[in-house]
Structures are given as structure tokens and as C-alpha cells.
């Protein structure tokens, strides 16, 4: 019956490939699409938060801190709800990490504040005795790279359709819109406005003065990013 097919090995191979590939597509893609969809309440990063995320990556925070709460009672008691894959929908790349020298930071925005981070990043041992985390004093002087963060926003909005300037559904039924500037000047202004909110809660006068003068130190961007981790 299938002699004609068996006599055409190439055609047969193509047919086998198509059959197996189709089976793979229908069984893998739907569940992949389902789990990679953003969880309700997950919002894209603002320009300042993205700049802070770059500071986080630049200083290799992910070498010692994970961002992945596993579904174990001991972890959820300490860090909050276990992580869902959809919560990483806007993380490019994700920063799960593979080693916890320090605590997990997946939901650090829920239980630490701007003031705490400010004191802690300057000298961790002063806040947490026996902490082996080094101080990051240079973050209070270095200027955050807002332009690159804006370039990243433009890229992910264009290539992956990240919903900037569009209402994103929140857990309580409301919506939230994360703004992205039309031009780089716009983006700088937006980032500065957000930085001013963060700096208002800070105590370091140098940082406050810098933000007042339109400069955003790395620490402000980093704190904005850490506060967004919820």
C-alpha cells in the first residue's frame, strides 16, 4: 500500500519530520505560551528601574543573590509566595542566580524600604552584624546610564511587544500604565521624576543634591529596581 512512499526515502524522511514536528508543536507550544504569559500584576520595568537592573547586573549581585523562591514551606515563610514563571515575563535576561550567599531578592520590595537599602548598600555590616556583603559606596557617586535603559525599553517594546504606554491589569482589578518616553529627552525626564520620588525618602544629602541637579546616581536607580521586586 505504501510502496510508493517507501521507495522515496527523502520524501519519507520529510513526512516523518513533519509528523513529529507537528506533534511537538501542538503539545509543547500551548503550555509554554500559557506559563510564559505575564502573571496578572506583573508590570514592565520603568526606565529608572531598568537602569537599576543594569547596575544590579554590572555589580554581579546575581552571583550571590538568587531571584527565585522555590515552593518549599521554609522558603515561602521567609520570602513570600513561590515564584511563577510568568513573573519573569519582562526579565531579559532573568536573574534567577544559582547560589545564595546572601538571601533571595525575588520579593525584597515587600519587606525592605528605600531608607534601609540606602544604609545597607553603604555599609552592610553596620545594619546586619556578621554580614559578609561588601559596601557599594561608589554607587552613591556613579551616574546611572538612563540612555542605555531607554534603548533597552525601545528594543523590547519593538521586538517583543512589551506593553509600555498601555494599561496592564493589576491583581485588584485596576490597571497600571508604565510610561516610556517618546524621545530620549522624554525618557530622561521620566526617569528623573521617578528618581525624585526615591530620593525624597533618602537621607544622604549628596545624593539628594545630585538628583535635585538632574543627575541620577546609580544607588537611586538600584533602589528603584529593588523596590519594584515584589
Amino acid at each position: 500500500m505504501f510502496h510508493w512512499l517507501e521507495k522515496n526515502p527523502f520524501l519519507f524522511a520529510v513526512g516523518v519530520f513533519l509528523t513529529v514536528a507537528f506533534a511537538g508543536v501542538v503539545s509543547i507550544l500551548p503550555s509554554f505560551a500559557q506559563t510564559s504569559r505575564p502573571v496578572i500584576g506583573t508590570t514592565p520595568y520603568s526606565t529608572l528601574e531598568l537602569a537599576g537592573r543594569q547596575v544590579y547586573i554590572k555589580n554581579s549581585c546575581n552571583a550571590c543573590h538568587s531571584q527565585l523562591v522555590r515552593p518549599f514551606k521554609a522558603e515561602t515563610d521567609r520570602y513570600g509566595h513561590y515564584s511563577l514563571s510568568g513573573e519573569y515575563a519582562y526579565d531579559r535576561p532573568f536573574l534567577w542566580g544559582s547560589k545564595r550567599t546572601g538571601p533571595d531578592l525575588m520579593r525584597v520590595g515587600n519587606y525592605r524600604t528605600t531608607e534601609w537599602h540606602e544604609n545597607h548598600m553603604m555599609n552592610p555590616a553596620a545594619i546586619v552584624p556578621n554580614s559578609i556583603m561588601p559596601g557599594y559606596a561608589w554607587m552613591f557617586k556613579n551616574i546611572a546610564d538612563i540612555d542605555t535603559a531607554y534603548a533597552e525599553q525601545l528594543t523590547v517594546a519593538g521586538v517583543f511587544g512589551v506593553p509600555y504606554n498601555k494599561p496592564v491589569p493589576m491583581a485588584d482589578g485596576s490597571t497600571k500604565t508604565i510610561k516610556m518616553g517618546k524621545t530620549v529627552e522624554d525618557a530622561r525626564a521620566l526617569a528623573l521624576a521617578e528618581a525624585k520620588l526615591v530620593a525624597a525618602d533618602m537621607k544622604n544629602q549628596d545624593v539628594k543634591d545630585m538628583v535635585k541637579n538632574g543627575k541620577i546616581p546609580e544607588i537611586v536607580a538600584l533602589i528603584a529596581y529593588l523596590n519594584s521586586l515584589k
Binding site: T76, D77, Y79, N110, Y111, T113, T114, E115, D201
Partner: peptide, 9 residues
Amino acid sequence: IGTMPKITV
């Protein structure tokens, strides 16, 4: 003094 976050865990 500042903001104390709510402790949900």
C-alpha cells in the same frame, strides 16, 4: 523615622 513595610509572611 521612615516607612515600615507590612510583614506579610
